[in-house]
Design a protein around this nucleic acid. Structure first.
Lengths: 237, 237
DNA sequence: CCAAAAGTGTTGCTTGTACACCCATGT
DNA sequence: ACATGGGTGTACAAGCAACACTTTTGG
């Protein structure tokens, strides 16, 4: 297009352009039994009927992508006000063999214990440990990988856990979450010192005695902290 | 489509959904005269005719977003094989008063000296120092901000410069680039040591004498290095 | 000679990392 | 008693940051 030509065109000029189906696909991540888990459901229509797929939906006419993702999450988990992050857009013309669909991936972090289990079961959905994922349709595995990258990056530069752990948790539980996210171990003592030095957690005067004989103090996130960025939480070897 | 049957099924299940105009907007960044600069051009059609805007274009029917961004860049700068990164999608239903357009922002890094200046001039475009940007249309300033965030992040975790500097450059030029990106100063000695310790540059036996009396060695990026990630280049105070 | 950048060295401080070590307690 | 995790401390290494200092050369 050359600019002199374009300059003559008015708003109606939008009409000459192609329109596209636009979808959102959500990598819904939760933490349960010491494992990071991804919610997948069997696709309900062709092509690839029955194959495992991320939760997704189409963006409607008067809806932002974020709103569409929220809608999908509400419909599938019954949860509102969920932590959401744009991950990446996938727009290869042939990514979906059925039609030309562009999809934006969102990462959602939820507390598995809080979601509507019946609703999830109704959809035939299943929580898969991220270490043992089944084959997925189209580019959904790439979507997951990018989401995990983003999660790791977020967990490195800020303390993650608010969205994945219960209100109160022990430092061991937090460490186990980090170990699940990074798929490696952290020195318990060093982890404790690093996390506490960030000054975003407060200790409660209650102990959890179910996971250790001695009992470990519960911690919770400080209320006022506005998700500040700390550089490099994860640098342990 | 591979099979009429599949196409029919698909039409049925996808047809009910809305379709959208999809655009790409490029934050084209270059480095010149010690400043980081953004290429903007006066919008050629209503609404907001004449206001400054990022380079953009619509995604066509059989084109990925990346391909669309490449096309825009070729048309406006004459450059191929440009470094591109997805930044973020903007999908507020009212972001463009002219029509419902969803836009993906791409960040492009180019060498100002290599682009087609006539082509840029022809479009009425202008390179603006990022510290003195004019008002821009719609959400384009947000797009720029997100792009700059991404650039800073990239410059922190890896050595940036390949795409913005000439083939050979002095460490002072590289430092000036970093100072432009982060809008702060770096200690010359420490910067030098840090950068060289990354082991991605090689020194040439040629000196630049235009910027200092003593003359400074030229460096270039090692050929084989596959853009490895180094953690935390920027941590200087 | 002076200014200005190139380039090297030194020193103090912070932080990561690998441990050792005692504590509390359920089995 | 002992295994297990809780919690603290120590010691070494690595890296950052501030800054001193020497070199080179054009004006």
């Amino acid at each position: 297009m050359n600019s002199k030509h374009a300059a003559l065109l008015l708003t109606e000029s939008y009409k000459q352009h192609a329109q596209h189906y636009l979808a959102v696909d959500c990598t819904i991540l939760g933490y349960e039994d010491g494992e990071l888990k991804l919610l997948l459901y069997p696709r309900g229509f062709e092509p690839a009927f029955g194959s495992w797929s991320l939760m997704g939906g189409f963006v409607q006419q008067n809806e932002s992508m974020e709103a569409a993702a929220m809608r999908v999450l509400l419909q599938t988990t019954g949860l509102k006000d969920i932590y959401l992050d744009q991950v990446a857009a996938f727009s290869d013309p042939n990514r979906d063999p059925g039609a030309r669909v562009i999809s934006m991936t969102f990462m959602a972090l939820i507390r598995i214990d809080k979601h509507d289990k019946d609703l999830v079961r109704e959809n035939g959905a299943h929580w898969w440990p991220v270490t043992k994922l089944p084959p997925m349709i189209f580019d959904h595995h790439q979507m997951f990988e990018k989401s995990l990258d983003l999660l790791q990056q977020k967990a490195s530069t800020g303390l993650i856990g608010r969205e994945l752990l219960p209100d109160r948790f022990t430092l061991m539980q937090l460490r186990n979450l980090y170990e699940a996210i990074f798929q490696r171990t952290f020195d318990p003592g060093n982890f404790r010192k690093k996390i506490l030095s960030l000054n975003v957690l407060e200790r409660l005067n209650v102990k959890n005695t179910t996971e250790s004989k001695k009992g470990a103090y519960y911690y919770q996130f400080k209320k006022d902290i506005s998700d500040q960025k700390n550089d490099r939480i994860v640098k342990f070897g």
